[in-house]
Structures are given as structure tokens and as C-alpha cells.
Amino acid sequence: MPWVKSAACLLTLALAAPTAQAATCDDTTVFDQRGKSDEVHAIAFLNLLRTRLRADDAPGVAALVRYPISASERGHTVKITTRTKFIRHYHAIFTERFKQVVYTQPDHCMFANDQGVMIGNGEIWFDADRHGRYRILTINPAD
């Protein structure tokens, strides 16, 4: 399967290549704060989230959330404690405008600090859990 070798080569190049993109970002990036390996994992998580949002896969997005979580729905904060409840509120939270924040986030310019990794201007924060799996920690309204 030649595509497997190609994918492996691309991943190897991505891990080995210096990150010139960080120099054009406005803030401290994942690479700056945490190094190349975390940057690769954060970008993979961002792309997984984008894929699930584009497919309007509410259960798939719900699986990426750490519960409980508070989210903004039509100007009100809603505490969501389970995947089932998240799925019920999915369309009110992930409006097309909100999804655009995720779609337009430059991969290599996600801000990071000790609280996690930020998408947009803080609309979504995510980080690795104790098992190393990235999970959405915070969902804030897109202004």
C-alpha cells in the first residue's frame, strides 16, 4: 500500500521540520510553549474537531469534551454534564458562526499556556487529559 508509506513520510517530515510558521503568529504558540510533539498532537486534535464539525457529527464532537463543561447557548450559560445532554445542545452551541472560528484557526498559531491550547480568541480551550487524550475544556461564545 504505497499511500501508507507516503503518509508515514509526510508525518516524519512534519515532525522533523522546523516550524517557521510560529514566527508569523501573534502570540505564544503550542510549539513555543510545549515543543513540536505537542504541536503535532494539538493540530491533529484541531483537524479532528474540524472534520466532525463539518460532518455535523454531534456524537463525535461530544466524545471530544471533558465533562462537566459550561457552554454558552443563546446568551445563557448552560452546564452540560453528559454526552447525551451535549448532543441535545449541540446545534445551539455550534452555530455556523461559531464553527467558522474553528475552521479559520491557523494550525500553527494556536496560543498555548499552562491552562491549555486556545482556538480563536478563547472560544474553545482544550488540553490533554491524564491519559494523554485531548479534550475540550471550555466553550465560550464567539463575539
Rank of each mutant, 00 (worst) to 15 (best):
W3L: 12
R130C: 08
S72E: 11
A42R: 04
V61C: 02
P59Q: 03
V102L: 07
I69V: 13
L53V: 04
V30I: 08
D26G: 10
D127Q: 11
R34Q: 15
F94W: 06
D114H: 10
R88F: 07
H89G: 05
G75N: 07
P141D: 11
A7G: 09
T138C: 04
P68N: 04
V101C: 04
Y90K: 00
G132D: 06
Y134E: 07
V101R: 04
F126I: 08
V65H: 01
L48S: 13
K99V: 03
Y67A: 02
A8T: 14
A7K: 14
R133A: 06
W125H: 08
A71Y: 00
Y103T: 06
K36I: 11
V30N: 05
G122S: 07
K79C: 02
I43S: 04
G75W: 05
A14T: 10
Y134W: 08
R83M: 05
R34M: 15
E123V: 07
R83A: 09
V102T: 07
F86D: 01
I93K: 01
S70N: 09
T28W: 09
T77A: 09
M110E: 06
P68C: 02
D32R: 04
G132A: 07
N121V: 06
K36T: 14
I80V: 06
H108G: 08
L13G: 07
L15H: 11
E96P: 12
P141C: 05
D38M: 14
K5G: 10
N47H: 15
K85M: 08
R97V: 03
M1F: 11
S6W: 13
L48T: 15
T82N: 01
I69K: 00
K36C: 12
P18A: 08
I87W: 01
G75C: 08
T28P: 06
A44T: 13
A23C: 09
K85Q: 14
Y67R: 01
G60M: 03
I136N: 00
D114K: 12
V101K: 03
A14G: 14
L137T: 07
